[in-house]
Design a binder for these strands. Structure first.
Length: 554
RNA sequence: GCGCUCAUAGCUCAACGGAUAGAGCACUUGACUACGGAUCAAGAGGUUGCAGGUUCGAAUCCUGCUGAGCGCACCA
């Protein structure tokens, strides 16, 4: 019996009680059934009696009594207790619990997938760092979290488009080009330009690729550095992302919005909705209609188009391309953007509480020798995506960055990253996977298989360690759905770490799977192989959602 | 000044409004005649920043305060 089936059983018990006239309440649409932390509280617990007590006008424990009596009639439920203020503690019989191993093995790679967000078209934009330098540690966090979130949303049934917005049109690119030009000519970079090893490297790559570029007039020269520099930098970012296992379906060019006239069209559309006005020679969007603290300029008095106008056109582009929900993942320096971005959606006639979500994630702080590393492009002490991958590898980097809530700042110690990589919990999870693969290899070499589904005896998986592990495996679909709905991939990571891997290691240490010496192969041997196979499936599926490999050997 | 976000063990971080707030690292102590010990078991470590409120129940929701980060352009 899966938690979903149990939830339905509880719901059915409520319905039956209502129909019998014992309870005067509306039957809840969803009944939550959770794994209690304390094993004495059974396999599952529900607080439904506590929630129904008030509307029913009955004491919680009386409601619980009614439901418990009905629940005890269900096959697969061994015991129902009432505890505390009115919790229902439910214990499954061993066969019903063990059956889950078969469910998982049968579903294979599909186990964990669900339809919580079925058919929802989501545009997920993340990283979107300016193409004027390598991706630094902050961007790496969004790469890890964003890519994992895309995988989780897809597993939850959503249709996801991942997107990187390239700011290839503004003054930052001009400064970047000017810096390259200066470097190529052996001059110091401009005061507000970009500094760093990579500037010199790219400048050299351009002078190598375009012989004679330095003989061109200054303005033509600058144009070459602008185009070539952008091309090389974007290629570099794409390479980094590719190596990091992060895929973007769309690399969206800001410049294309300018070149195609999309911005003017967007302004017209916003004007039709009645939120555009002129003042002091500029064209404005009245974002204060929808909670922004000030109105925003779309076209400046001198005729220049603002970055905000491009943002507006970009949102409409996402919408036109079919996005029902546009998710923006931005860094903590973008708090001020939330209201104006949401106002764009509202001004376009959309529902700002549904069609657009702006997630603000906290910074990554770096520590070296106990002191915070203040990164600055000027000082050239940026910690880049390639640095992190060199130090600890893609798996450990992705896991480290994806295992915490984006709401919390994370502090990474450079000394730890560059030395003791085995401290990373990702290895704990991967080791569980290799252990199961090891058991399977050993079983094969002994000529043992888990046998056919008909011969599987789930009731033999009855020790506390097997029961705990089965409970953890049963929780996977719910965890994936929750992570998708909350847009928080770290729930999957913590689940693998604290539930699945931990409980597997305990099971492994306490329950011998394969026969030792001249012991017989028994039904219990085969049942435990089913459980190991099911666990391996969940670990592999879970790691895949995080973009982390599930190695067969380490 | 206004706005947004955060505050949990020595450190790094968890905790769907639920029962005794959990892991890892570091510290103390056990378990290898092994299905690979990158593991397991045990111990110690907390007034969840402070003060109120809502609730049967608050780390979680509301209010105020304190502290920290970020943001408040006809910049991008």
């Amino acid at each position: 019996m899966t938690p979903a089936e149990l939830s339905q059983a509880v719901q059915a018990a409520v319905s039956a009680a209502v129909e019998a006239g014992e309870l005067a309440v509306a039957v809840p649409e969803h009944v939550t059934v959770e794994r209690p932390k304390n094993r004495d509280h059974g396999d599952y617990a529900t607080n439904v009696a506590l929630q129904l007590a008030k509307p029913a006008g009955r004491p919680p424990r009386a409601v619980a009594e009614l439901l418990a009596a009905r629940l005890r009639e269900f096959t697969g439920i061994a015991k129902v207790d009432i505890a505390g203020p009115g919790f229902l503690n439910i214990t499954l019989d061993a066969a019903s619990a063990g059956e889950l191993a078969r469910t998982v093995v049968d579903a294979g790679e599909a186990y964990g997938r669900n339809e919580a967000l079925k058919g929802l078209k989501i545009n997920l934009e993340f990283v979107s760092a300016n193409p004027t330098g390598p991706i630094h540690i902050g961007g790496v966090r969004w790469a890890a979290v964003g890519d994992s979130l895309a995988r989780i949303l897809r597993a939850t049934g959503a249709e996801v488009t991942t997107e990187y917005y390239l700011n290839d049109a503004g003054v930052q690119i001009s400064k970047f080009a000017a810096s390259l030009q200066a470097a190529a000519n052996g001059r110091p970079v401009p005061a507000d330009g970009y500094v760093g090893e990579y500037i010199v490297d790219i400048a050299k790559a351009i002078t190598d690729a375009v012989p004679g570029v330095l003989d061109l007039p200054a303005d033509e020269q600058l144009q070459v550095f602008r185009e070539q520099g952008l091309k090389l930098m974007v290629a570099e970012i794409k390479r980094s992302m590719d190596e990091f296992g992060t895929h973007f379906d769309v690399w969206f060019s800001e410049k294309s919005l300018h070149d195609s006239g999309a911005i003017e069209k967007a302004i017209d559309r916003l004007r039709e909705q009645g939120h555009v006005f002129e003042q002091d020679g500029a064209i404005w969007l009245r974002t204060t209609d929808f909670g922004d603290d000030k109105d925003r300029v779309l076209v400046k008095a001198d005729g220049d188009i603002t970055y905000f106008a491009a943002d507006s056109a970009y949102y409409l582009s996402k919408r036109d391309r079919g996005s029902e929900v546009s998710v923006y993942m931005l860094g903590a320096d973008h708090h001020g953007y939330v209201n104006r971005l949401k106002a764009i959606a509202a001004c376009a006639g959309d529902d700002m509480n549904r069609n657009i979500e702006v997630k603000i994630g906290q910074f990554v702080k770096m520590l070296r020798d106990g002191e915070e590393v203040r990164m600055s492009k000027r000082a050239g002490n940026i910690i880049t995506i390639d640095d992190v991958v060199d130090w600890i590898g893609v798996d450990a980097a992705r896991y480290t960055l994806a295992r915490s809530s984006t709401d919390s700042t994370i502090t990474l110690d450079v000394n730890v990253l560059t030395s003791q990589t085995s401290e990373n919990p990702v290895f704990y999870i991967q080791y569980a996977h290799t252990r199961m693969c090891g058991v399977q290899r050993k079983a094969e070499s002994m000529g043992i298989t888990k046998g056919s589904a008909e011969d599987f005896k789930p009731e033999l998986l009855a020790t506390e360690w097997e029961s705990e592990l089965l409970g953890a495996l049963a929780d996977f679909p719910r965890v994936v759905a929750k992570a998708g709905e909350l847009r928080e991939p770290h729930h999957v990571a913590r689940y693998l770490e604290d539930d699945v891997a931990r409980k597997y290691h305990r099971f492994y240490d306490n329950c011998q799977i394969l026969p030792k010496g001249d012991e017989e192969v028994t039904d219990l041997t085969r049942a435990r192989l089913w459980l190991a196979d099911a666990t391996r499936t969940v670990v592999a599926n879970g790691l895949a959602l995080l973009g982390v490999s599930a190695p067969e050997r380490m």
